[in-house]
Design a protein around this nucleic acid. Structure first.
Lengths: 134, 134
DNA sequence: ATGAATGCAAAAACTTTGCATGACG
DNA sequence: CGTCATGCAAAGTTTTTGCATTCAT
């Protein structure tokens, strides 16, 4: 199993809940799931994992760099597998659909702005709220 | 009083709590306050306003465009007076300091990216997490 | 006067934590 | 086997809501 080595690689003991949660994030058709989403999906799949464990494991995964946590608009956080490289998000205000994008020009400008202010960029969060053109 | 006409202008009845909260946001030295911050500041100023009212009023102010709500990193939301034009934020991960900035190039690029995907930009949220250069 | 706004307390939504039990290496 | 992870339930945070009372127009 590929996932198990992923877990060991980041220094996490390979336990059933951790494997199941990682698989769920990997195999779901939704890119972004809340802790509750993961929990419900596992329950429906007949996997018996506690919600508290889901929260704990997702937090560990985030610390390990396996997943990325997003706080799109308050309320609940969503998590996505840290598959490829970095990207930002567009959220459709009508459908809730999430589109990922990456723009190197914007990335570059961010670094420049920060440097101009005497800082260095640690991380950033860019969400574009959009609507389908009429 | 300037604030009272502000309230009437947006269709909100001029009540003591609303005036006090608006004044607090206007006169504080902090640009960004949470609902709790506003509540505590009012209490210390001897103003007797309920926390629930602070939440309700801030939400109304946001809907009216008088304030802008930010969800910097989960946890609690912060509000700032919608004084001038739009701007984005840098948050220092060490000190918590918030710096405002505006970059027309980034703004332009956002619109272009969205258009390229067949959408129109409704709003956006950009926060740069930074650290003072060593 | 009358409808909206407030305050309080209770509830809701999301997340974290304490502790006894169970599982991994 | 020892230690770390889990599950449950309880507690913590932040925000919202129901309802009786008060206030603005």
């Amino acid at each position: 199993m590929v996932e198990n080595s992923e877990l060991r690689k980041v220094g996490l003991k390979v336990t059933l809940p951790r494997v199941k949660i990682l698989q769920m994030l990997d195999t779901t058709d939704r890119r972004h799931m809340s802790a509750e989403d993961v929990y419900k999906a596992l329950m429906e799949a007949g996997e018996d994992v506690g919600l508290a464990t889901v929260y704990r494991v997702l937090t560990q995964f985030e610390a390990a760099g396996l997943v990325v946590r997003h706080n799109f608009d308050g309320g609940h956080a969503v998590f996505e597998l840290a598959d490829g490289g970095h990207h930002d998000h567009m959220v459709c205000v009508d459908s809730g659909e999430v589109i990922e994008f990456f723009d190197s020009e914007i990335e570059k400008l961010q670094k420049e702005i920060v440097k101009r202010h005497g800082y260095e960029l640690v991380d950033h969060n860019l969400v574009l709220y959009v609507r389908k053109k009429a």
